[in-house]
Amino acid sequence: MKTTPTYGIMAEFDSASDLVAAARKTHEAGYRKIDAYSPFPVEELAEAIGFHKNGVPLVTLIGALIGGISGYLMQYWMAAISYPINVGGRPFHSWPAFIVVTFEMTILFGGIAAVFGMLALNGLPMPYHPVFNVPRFAMATKDRFFLIVFSSDPKYNPTDTRRFLEGLKPRSISEVPS
């Protein structure tokens, strides 16, 4: 693999529509290692850069199941095995009384798994990232939209890729140092 001093080439756009159209064309042109940045969630964008699989629901489900099952078993073990208290001859395994805590544990673990799963899958926290080296990128959290082709893309070529991005009529183009 060739090593290049650049991380990628970044193009800046004015609107979400322009960015989605540009991202689609880039993906159609055969670039696969690309990413797009927007100041708010744009539904069509992930699809446009060819990103479909999303692990968050599975992580949340696993978290919720762990919470619910362990919550119930915890109560069963504590109330029926480890520390049984005879209350008027009622059964030790009094399952209706255990539902509330089981439910709360399901929600708690599911919610924690959703948030921390999302952060982990996104690779956050990540205080440093090469895209922050582009001064104009500070506008990505305000009103500008960015598309990047990473230099690790097999089709990447400093001159050709730049020319291709210029053909998408961006507002500006910058090289991202790695």
Binding site: S38, L45, L124, P125
Partner: peptide, 21 residues
């Protein structure tokens, strides 16, 4: 902000997470 940069991949997972939560 933990290095949030508004990547489309991040937003996609973020929106899924937000709805699930």
């Amino acid at each position: 902000a933990m290095g949030w940069r508004g990547s489309a991949r991040h937003w996609h997972r973020y929106e899924t997470m937000y709805l699930l939560l």
